[in-house]
Design a protein around this nucleic acid. Structure first.
Lengths: 188, 188
DNA sequence: GCACGGCATGTCAGTGGCTGACATCGCGAC
DNA sequence: GTCGCGATGTCAGCCACTGACATGCCGTGC
């Protein structure tokens, strides 16, 4: 066995989740999280830039999923269809974790500081998507605009998926939202 | 003369602007801002919820401009045209202050924490716009989606306006961005 | 013209997020 | 077996932000 228990990062994430849910975000201190994980506050801040970031450790992976799916869409596909593939990839990834996503969304909705962090993550998705569209030949500023619209689509679909009593699945809701917008983004 | 110099809020804003520009955002403390304004740190935090908020005091007024213009658009106008009126109102408001907007944008672009705040302000524009569209008869979730697209349009136009060497005016850039998207948002 | 209450500010003490500097020590490379 | 690396611990400190209470001009009512 090593000098320390393994998986410290994951332990911190789990401790944070549990305490944020139990006591609320503001009432939880970084020291409490660290203690519950058997670590020190300083170590918490080595793994996560701030108290909020611990709730967003997954974000990079989902973003990569999105841009990869768009990048790998057949070259003949119009931007709209490449984007559809990307959004569906994200939808398929999140669909199985509905309950966890719901809890997480409720936590974020209750705390403006967390919404801010969520929004900047969305902006980073948008920027990455815009780059990918450019690489597929979409010119600026259409690429940036189209990317923002695409993120708006997933978000609205996501919110319906979280909110609604019925259990329509996320990919379906994404497709529906996509149908409501005529994406510009023609090749030239 | 009153017990104190008047316009303390404005003095704080100006002091903050000057110091953020001169020394950078993080290197400026709230106490320094207050001192430059002839006030105390505590008073700074009575006027502004945090160090960032002082850069966004104008935001509510512009949001009101937007929703009012949309609300007052002739009832016969399609949502797309009502939105166009709203966005043009915002464009017309910002156009005369290009240099100030440019400086402000540069400051924000250099600091992720400020971007976060900017994004949540945009989200509040979007939410207010969605409500207004609903009041005009646009159903959910189309209203929310359309509102987000509208905000994406102003943002992309705004960024071009800020960035570009030439001096095309903001209302024109907004109209151009609007043309790139077919807004859904039909009445029923 | 005086008492009074409100309101913007001041004062003070405290909490907690976050950081830099330095110490510790198991583990793998060689 | 030594050595250096990397993850963690320890400690001291800054500053954003807050609650509680004090102060004193100013308008209001009488």
């Amino acid at each position: 066995m090593g000098r320390w228990e393994p998986h410290s990062r994951r332990r911190l994430e789990e401790a944070a989740l549990a305490l944020y849910a139990r006591d609320g975000f503001e009432k939880t201190t970084a020291a409490q999280i660290a203690e519950r994980a058997g670590l020190t506050e300083r170590t918490f801040f080595r793994h996560f830039g701030d108290k909020r970031e611990v709730l967003f450790s997954n974000e990079g992976a989902v973003r990569e999923l999105l841009v990869t799916a768009v990048r790998n869409a057949p070259e003949a596909h119009a931007p709209r269809d490449a984007i559809a593939a990307g959004l569906q990839a994200v939808g398929g990834e999140l669909q199985p974790r509905r309950e966890a996503q719901r809890r997480r969304a409720a936590l974020i909705a209750a705390h403006p500081e967390l919404q801010e962090r969520e929004l900047i993550k969305q902006a980073s998705w948008s920027a990455a998507l815009a780059d990918t569209l450019q690489a597929r030949g979409v010119a600026e500023p259409a690429a940036r605009l189209t990317a923002k619209v695409a993120i708006a689509i997933v978000r609205v679909a996501f919110e319906r998926w979280i909110d609604e009593a019925n259990d329509r699945d996320l990919p379906h809701l994404i497709a529906e939202a996509l149908d409501q917008i005529e994406l510009f983004a023609s090749r030239e």
